[in-house]
């Protein structure tokens, strides 16, 4: 290629056969304005997409908060349901018991399952477990509820009970936790595993001390999603937990238990204003509960990740 002497203007008249190398000012200006236009179009599309996601959230939240606050009365937190009126203390307590129960069961089974799949499972066997887990997570919740009703409540004579509710809800959400745990563990850099192995750490110890920590945000997020689903689930509970105007008892079997989604669904279908008010307040409480769980999970993540690679910008 011929060299152009320093200081010589580049030839502007001859269009280069390769269009990308065509440097005439008119061409460059046209290209620049086209790029700006494309940029504006993509930014517009992004903004529209964001609005499409955010608008329904804002709408639902505003609706729930608005109607919930309108009918809000502090006594809903302290009194139990009477007929279709009264308070929601029994339902709040019941939901908390159910969520904590699910978190414990799913936390143990799901995280252990995820660790097994990611760390210890031989290649062939993993496929079966993963497939089963995926089928489970695809099953409609009302089907699981019905199966729980037919087997646990009726066949095993558990009755409407906490045990039946926990069993069905746990089966329903465990795949989320297994998946979240496995995926987060697999994304932990191999350098951590190499380093801990080269130091002579036993594999279980290395897992607890080094490998699990960077995977924790993903695992906690999975667990919180599972708990949020458990809080918001209605169909399986209608089939297994029943409903009770009383506070939860220590009985696992033959003791129906109240939960917050019941008034939202059932009371709203009643022809009484008091029932509608209770439904709106229950919906508000569900939203607040979900928000609280998100906040707690963020705090857990922030505390455990304070030494992580990504949260520490180089100085």
């Amino acid at each position: 290629m011929a060299t152009v002497p320093v200081g010589t203007a580049l030839p502007t008249a001859s269009p280069h056969p390769d269009r990308a190398l065509d440097t005439r000012p008119s061409v460059r200006r046209r290209r620049w304005s086209r790029r700006r236009a494309a940029n504006a179009v993509y930014w517009g599309a992004c903004a529209a997409a964001l609005a499409g996601v955010a608008a329904p959230v804002v709408w639902v939240l505003a609706g729930v908060v608005n109607s919930g606050l309108r009918d809000w009365h502090w006594s809903v937190l302290t009194t139990q349901t009477v007929g279709t009126g009264g308070g929601l203390l029994n339902a709040i307590a019941g939901t908390l018991v159910i969520v904590v129960g699910v978190a414990v069961i799913v936390g143990i089974v799901g995280i252990a399952g995820g660790i097994y799949l990611a760390e210890f499972c031989p290649e062939g066997r993993g496929g079966l477990l993963r497939g089963g887990s995926e089928i489970l997570s695809g099953a409609p919740s009302i089907v699981l509820g019905y199966v729980g009703y037919v087997t646990l409540v009726v066949r095993f004579h558990w009755g409407f009970s906490l045990a039946a509710a926990l069993a069905v809800l746990s089966v329903m959400v465990v795949p989320y936790v297994v998946k979240a745990t496995e995926v987060s563990l697999r994304s932990v850099p191999t350098a951590y595993r190499d380093g801990s192995e080269a130091l002579g750490m036993p594999s279980g110890y290395a897992l607890r001390r080094v490998v699990l920590r960077p995977a924790l945000p993903g695992i906690v997020t999975g667990l919180i999603v599972a708990m949020a689903i458990a809080v918001g689930e209605t169909a399986p509970l209608l089939y297994t937990a029943g409903w009770s105007n009383n506070l939860p008892t220590a009985h696992l079997f033959h003791a129906p238990i109240a939960y917050l989604t019941y008034p939202v669904w059932t009371f709203y279908n009643q022809p009484y204003a008091s029932a509608h008010r209770l439904a709106a307040v229950a919906a508000l409480l569900l939203v607040v509960l979900a928000l609280l769980m998100i906040v707690v999970s963020r705090i857990i993540v922030a505390v455990t990740q304070r030494h992580s690679e990504t949260s520490s910008a180089p100085h």
Binding site: A191, S196, A198, M201, R209, V210, S308, E309
Partner: peptide
């Protein structure tokens, strides 16, 4: 027989915890 790798691979723990990681493990 200790080992040092091609790229530095400190653990996601504090500096102190990193140094004593092996001491504690053993």
């Amino acid at each position: 027989v200790g080992m040092l790798f091609q790229r530095p691979n400190p653990f996601p723990l504090s500096i102190h915890e990193n140094v004593i990681a092996g001491v504690k493990a053993h």
